[in-house]
Design a protein around this nucleic acid. Structure first.
Lengths: 113, 113
DNA sequence: GATATGTGTCAGCTTTCTTTGACAGGTGCG
DNA sequence: CGCACCTGTCAAAGAAAGCTGACACATATC
């Protein structure tokens, strides 16, 4: 039931969900799949902005987008939620922290000591 | 068992946990309470930086700090984890998104009003 | 052709977060 | 006293995130 992610994966998930717009996007997609332009209108934000947010959610594996051709021939990108499930406890966070790679380093300063 | 937070609360929690240093701090505190200077040495980061990160975690309710007087008379601030437990699913995120206040808006210029 | 829909990207600005060094204070001990 | 700890704060710089308008491309309809 619960997914047990690596530190880097959990970092991307938390970074993706820790934003008002992206939380609202998840809420909007819970009612069904939707395409970018319509989603932008419903949420009242610009499409370039929404595009960026969706990319962040997709990079975290929380949504998936598929480019489809409508019957009229226009290409439309539909996004939908993935059935993710993460538990946030001191234990789960701590075990994820152990697998953090230094690529995600906040700052590197490996001199002598 | 699971905590059901408001949108703003969840936002603070996700923002607090979505950082490599703060994840490591949670991992370090899982082994027991600790005071700031020692924690900074063990994690290899500066005290001012750790102080800021701890403040962020405390603002999210994930840790609590208590200023105590050691037997020798020095004042030391001990931090320890709170037994938090959050479930991250499309449903939990969506319901939290409904209670988001506009105060936590992502950059809004408040010129007129 | 002009308009309306859809797609995506880019540069540049603003805002926030992160980080560091310096500074303030306190206590106990040789 | 000077040294070794502890506490806290501040300003400024650097890095990252957020946001906007303009652009380019496609297709269908008027």
């Amino acid at each position: 039931m619960d997914e047990v992610p690596t530190g880097d994966e959990l970092l991307k998930v938390l970074g993706a969900l820790g934003n008002p717009h992206r939380m609202r996007i998840v809420g909007a997609l819970l009612e069904g799949r939707n395409y970018v332009s319509r989603l932008a209108r419903e949420l009242g934000i610009g499409r370039p902005l929404l595009h960026m947010h969706l990319q962040r959610l997709e990079a975290a594996g929380l949504v998936v987008g598929t480019l489809e051709l409508s019957e009229s021939g226009k290409s439309m990108k539909y996004f939908e939620l993935t059935p993710f499930c993460f538990a946030l406890t001191p234990q789960s966070v701590a075990s994820a922290a152990l697998t953090l790679t230094e690529e995600e380093r906040p700052t590197m300063k490996e001199s002598a000591k």
